Simulated scan of single mutants.
Amino acid sequence: MYKATIDSETHLAILEPRHAKELYQVIDDSRETIGEWLSFPSHTNKVDDTAAFIKKSLKRLAENNGYWAGIWHNGRIAGSIGFLYIDWSAKKTEIGYWLGDEFTGKGLAAKALSQFIDHSFNDLGLRKIEVNTASKNLRSRTIPEKLGFTQEGTIRNYEYLNGEYHDRVIYGLLKEEWHLPIK
């Protein structure tokens, strides 16, 4: 999947080096909000950091072990979604996602995740997808719940972030549980 159209205003595309500056700007503009639940904003301090992330993602794509795509809305990068890894022997993956502050509340993450799920099962032949979210990140948790994922468990004290421990809720979706993508 190099580019996937979600609707007339939104599409996904593999992140490329030319996107580093715009992606960095979205992270920088939303640093506090994204950083409440994810650690990467604390070590994304310049455009070169974002460029290095994109380079690493393209390497993983070339190695057939995951990648990150940008979520574009009305011609602007709104956030990102990606396969953290692909376990080809178990035919499973974990998908992560985030949006800049300006783009939340529009259903973009759910639509992007729906597209990635469909791609995972129908194009890549995977059997299971996991999404892991901080237990207190209720906005992020509603997305896999809305898409039919099953809460499979909680890892206590999964991550130490912003001076406190965060539990991580694990959601799973099997291929036979997947229904139609959200448009």
Results as ranks from 00 to 15, higher is better:
F121L: 02
E164H: 08
E63S: 11
N157F: 11
I170P: 02
K92E: 15
F103L: 08
E9D: 15
G153S: 05
Y160K: 13
S89T: 12
I81A: 08
T104Q: 15
R168N: 14
L174E: 15
A90E: 12
G82E: 00
I54W: 00
K111F: 04
G82W: 00
Y171V: 02
D118P: 03
F53H: 06
Q115K: 13
E152D: 13
A62S: 13
E152T: 09
L23W: 10
L99T: 03
S114V: 07
K56H: 12
A112F: 05
R141Y: 11
G148E: 02
I170M: 10
I71E: 05
W98T: 07
G100Y: 02
L126M: 09
Y24I: 04
I117G: 03
R31T: 07
R18A: 14
A13S: 14
I54P: 01
E130D: 08
A78N: 05
W72T: 03
Q151L: 10
G148R: 00
E94W: 05
D118F: 08
I129Q: 00
I170R: 08
N157P: 04
R18E: 15
D87G: 04
Q151W: 04
L38T: 05
G172D: 02
P144A: 03
P41I: 09
E36W: 02
I6E: 02
E22Q: 13
E164A: 08
A4K: 14
E130Q: 11
D87F: 06
N74S: 14
K175V: 14
L138S: 10
K136D: 15
I95K: 00
S39A: 11
G100M: 04
T154G: 05
P17G: 10
L15H: 01
G100V: 02
L38W: 04
E152H: 06
E22S: 10
G75H: 14
K111G: 03
I155T: 13
I182G: 04
R168V: 07
S30M: 10
A4H: 12
T44Q: 04
N74C: 13
E32G: 09
Y165C: 09
L99E: 01
I77E: 04
G105Y: 11
G79V: 02
K46F: 09
S114H: 06
W178I: 05
G35I: 03
G82S: 03
W37H: 05
Y67V: 00
P144Y: 01
L124K: 01
K183L: 11
D29V: 07
N45W: 08
L173D: 06
W37P: 05
E36L: 04
R60M: 06
